[in-house]
Amino acid sequence: MLTLSDHRVKQAQWCPSPNHNDRPDPDDISLLVIHNISLPPGQFGGPYIEDLFSNRLDPQRDPYFREIHQLTVSSHFLIRRDGLLMQFVDCDKRAWHAGVSAFEGRENCNDYAIGIELEGTDQLPFECAQYRTLVALTALLQRHYPAITNDRITGHEHIAPGRKTDPGPAFQWGSYFQSLAAFKENLA
Results as ranks from 00 to 15, higher is better:
99 G>F: 10
134 L>W: 02
115 G>V: 01
98 A>K: 02
137 L>Y: 07
126 F>C: 07
97 H>Q: 12
137 L>P: 13
93 K>V: 07
140 L>Q: 14
93 K>E: 11
99 G>E: 12
129 A>F: 00
118 L>V: 08
140 L>M: 14
131 Y>L: 13
111 D>K: 03
99 G>Q: 15
108 N>W: 03
134 L>P: 12
140 L>K: 14
115 G>L: 09
107 E>A: 08
107 E>T: 05
99 G>C: 04
102 A>F: 05
114 I>P: 09
104 E>V: 02
139 A>N: 14
95 A>K: 01
134 L>Q: 05
99 G>L: 05
110 N>L: 02
126 F>R: 02
121 T>Y: 06
121 T>A: 12
100 V>P: 13
122 D>L: 10
119 E>C: 11
118 L>I: 13
110 N>P: 02
120 G>R: 02
125 P>R: 01
112 Y>F: 15
135 V>P: 11
99 G>T: 14
137 L>I: 09
112 Y>A: 02
98 A>P: 10
94 R>K: 12
102 A>I: 04
127 E>I: 04
123 Q>I: 04
105 G>Y: 10
96 W>S: 06
113 A>L: 00
140 L>T: 13
132 R>C: 10
133 T>M: 13
106 R>A: 11
104 E>D: 06
124 L>C: 03
93 K>P: 01
134 L>M: 07
139 A>C: 09
114 I>T: 12
106 R>H: 13
94 R>T: 09
136 A>I: 01
129 A>E: 15
109 C>Q: 08
139 A>V: 09
98 A>R: 03
120 G>N: 01
102 A>Y: 01
107 E>L: 00
108 N>T: 02
113 A>K: 00
105 G>T: 08
114 I>W: 00
100 V>H: 10
103 F>D: 09
131 Y>D: 09
95 A>M: 03
121 T>L: 03
139 A>K: 06
118 L>M: 12
107 E>W: 00
118 L>H: 11
129 A>P: 11
130 Q>N: 10
105 G>A: 13
129 A>W: 04
128 C>F: 02
127 E>D: 10
108 N>A: 04
